[in-house]
Design a protein around this nucleic acid. Sequence first.
DNA 1: AGGTATGTTAATTG
DNA 2: GCAATTAACATACC
Length: 259
Amino acid sequence: MPELPEVETYRRYFERHALEQELAAVDVHDPRILENVTPPILQRRFVGTRFVSVRRHGKHLFAATSSDRWLHLHFGMSGDLIYSAAGEPSRFARVSFRFRNGARLSFDDMRLFGWVAVVDSAEDEIVRRELGPDPLELSARAFAAIVNGRRGAIKALLMNQSNIAGLGNLYVDEMLFQSSIDPRRAADTLTEREISTMYRAMKKILETMIELHANDRPAPRRWLIDRRDVDNPCPRCGGRITRATLFGRTTYFCADHQT
DNA sequence: AGGTATGTTAATTG
DNA sequence: GCAATTAACATACC
């Protein structure tokens, strides 16, 4: 389930379980998951090294190794990380990093929209892919600068990873729901106050979800996220949740209070 | 059987 | 160049 809070959760999981152990083997269960390497090159790059740190930018995860290469993961729609001390990899494991102690870290991805790559520099890769700033390191002023002067719809703007990296369909809907803004509103019709409300909602939603994932807790009941279904009562105003396809994605919102 | 899915990108059109 | 739209990618679930 990968937007920014989920990828941050994977980052912490990777950091907690898979650092500073020598890699004994890399098993490629399905080579279609590899973005810019072949199985033998992936193995040559990583066997004998250790992961030393993990960083995240938007929905991208980068693990530095004790050599000069980085592992670069993107989770697509259904990517996941599973560390296990022993046993067989799960049904949808596409690559498994096996450690000297017999444990493995598997990259799972049922739908294969994610990928595994090897890069020389996380920083260069962020630039090369034209990723915008990570929202957790974005000031209110910088956020306003991204929104201001754009004519397109606010939802499309927020989903575009080159504007801000890390928001996806669910959390953009959540931000707009909590900010009472219609997803179709043109960015240049938003007031300063609305932009500032969106910024605060964005930070609160992302930080809260990271905390909730860490404690394995569900989203708050007054949020949209677990009520994404047509005709559900709006947990804010008593209206009805509407569903529409906007900018290619299924969008849920409350037409009563989001204007 | 058909609709749906947390993402990205290329192609097309305005 | 920007913005909107659609299709495509591959797979499973209900």
